[in-house]
C-alpha cells in the first residue's frame, strides 16, 4: 500500500507534494531537472482572462529567510494556457490544478468556465489573494462577503472542484474560511504571501518597483501553520497547506496542523530538486515520528480544547 497517497475532491494524489502556483510556471523548466510524474500534483501559474504582462522590475528582493515578489500575474491568458501548457503537463502522470485569477467577477467566471474545455485539469485553485496587482483579486480575498460571492460564481461556472486560496493579510482567517466553505468551496489552499516591503538604502526607495511585494519562504511558515491550525478546527473541507516548506519535516508539521496535502514554493528556486527530495524523504520522516501514513498524520497536532 502507498502510505503517501491522499484522496481529495477531484484529486487522487499518489503523494501529498506539489509545487505551489507561481513558483513553477507550467512545469517545462523543472521538467528538465526531473520527471514531473514524481509529483502528487502541479499547481499551475495563475491564469487570467487575457494575457497579462505583469509588473515592472525589480520584481523580487531577498529577505531574512525569505523573499518578496511582485510579479503581477504575468501569464499568456487562459486560452493559450489550455492550448499550449495543459497538454504539456498532461504528458505526465500527475494531477493538474489550475490557479485562476481575475479583476472582476466576470473575469473569474470566464477563466473558470474556460477550463471546462479540457479533461486534463483536475481542480481549480481560486486565487483571491494575490497582493501584487491593483485589481488581482485581493479585494475578493479580504472581505468574507466578496469571497463568498466569487466562490459561488466560480462554482457555478465550473464543473471542477474549487480550492479557494486564502490570504493571510486578514484579521480573521477563520471567518474567511467559513464564508467560502458556506459558498460551496470544495477545499482551501493556504496561505498566500504576506504583504511586505524592503527599502533599498543606496536609492532610499522601495526596492521592488511595485513598492510592496508578497513575502514567502521559511519566514512565513509559522504564520501558515497557525492559520491552518485555526481554520482546520472550524471547517470540514480539506486544506492544501503552503508557506515556507522546504523539508519533509516541514511537510509533517503542516499535516499535523491540519493540511491534507502540501505545496512547495520558494524552495524550488534554490533547489530545483526540492519536491522529489521531499517525496523521497517523507516515508522515513513519517515513520520516525510514529505515523503509518500521510492520512494518519493529518490534524494530529491539534490539541483538543
Amino acid at each position: 500500500m502507498n502510505n503517501l497517497a491522499v484522496n481529495l475532491p477531484g484529486l487522487e494524489l499518489k503523494n501529498p507534494i506539489m509545487p505551489a502556483s507561481g513558483c513553477f510556471a507550467f512545469g517545462r523548466e523543472y521538467s528538465k531537472f526531473y520527471d514531473l510524474s514524481k509529483l502528487g500534483a502541479v499547481m499551475m501559474k495563475a491564469a487570467t482572462g487575457t494575457e497579462r504582462f505583469g509588473n515592472p522590475t525589480p520584481r523580487v528582493a531577498e529577505t531574512a529567510s525569505g523573499m518578496l515578489n511582485a510579479i503581477g500575474l504575468q501569464n499568456p491568458g487562459v486560452e493559450k494556457i489550455i492550448e499550449n501548457e495543459v497538454p504539456f503537463l498532461a504528458n505526465y502522470d500527475t494531477s493538474i490544478i489550475a490557479n485562476i485569477a481575475g479583476s472582476t467577477l466576470e473575469e473569474y467566471e470566464k477563466v473558470a468556465n474556460a477550463f471546462n474545455q479540457t479533461d486534463d485539469v483536475h481542480a481549480l485553485e481560486l486565487n483571491i489573494s494575490c497582493p501584487n496587482v491593483k485589481e488581482g483579486g485581493i479585494q475578493f480575498g479580504t472581505d468574507p462577503g466578496m469571497a463568498a460571492k466569487v466562490t459561488e460564481a466560480v462554482k457555478k461556472a465550473s464543473r471542477l472542484p474549487v480550492y479557494v486560496k486564502l490570504s493571510p493579510n486578514v484579521t480573521n482567517v477563520v471567518e474567511m474560511a467559513k464564508a467560502v466553505e458556506a459558498a460551496g468551496a470544495d477545499g482551501l489552499s493556504m496561505i498566500n504571501t504576506l504583504t511586505g516591503m524592503q527599502i533599498h538604502l543606496p536609492s532610499k526607495k522601495p526596492l521592488i518597483a511595485n513598492q510592496t511585494g508578497g513575502l514567502s519562504g521559511p519566514a512565513i511558515k509559522p504564520v501558515a501553520i497557525r492559520m491552518i491550525y485555526e481554520v482546520k478546527q472550524h471547517v470540514s473541507i480539506p486544506i492544501i497547506g503552503m508557506g515556507g516548506v522546504s523539508t519533509a519535516e516541514d511537510v509533517l508539521e503542516f499535516l499535523l496542523a491540519g493540511a491534507s496535502a502540501v505545496a512547495v514554493g520558494t524552495a524550488n528556486f534554490n533547489n530545483p530538486y526540492v519536491c522529489p527530495e521531499i517525496i523521497e524523504a517523507l516515508p522515513e520522516t513519517l515513520q520516525k515520528y510514529g505515523f503509518d501514513s500521510v492520512q494518519d498524520a493529518i490534524g494530529k497536532g491539534i490539541v483538543q480544547a
Binding site: C23, A25, R28, G54, T57, R59, F269
Partner: peptide, 11 residues
C-alpha cells in the same frame, strides 16, 4: 528568482 525561467522575476 529561480534563474531557470519559471518565476518571471527577471524580465
Amino acid at each position: 528568482g529561480c534563474g531557470v525561467g519559471a518565476c518571471m522575476a527577471c524580465v
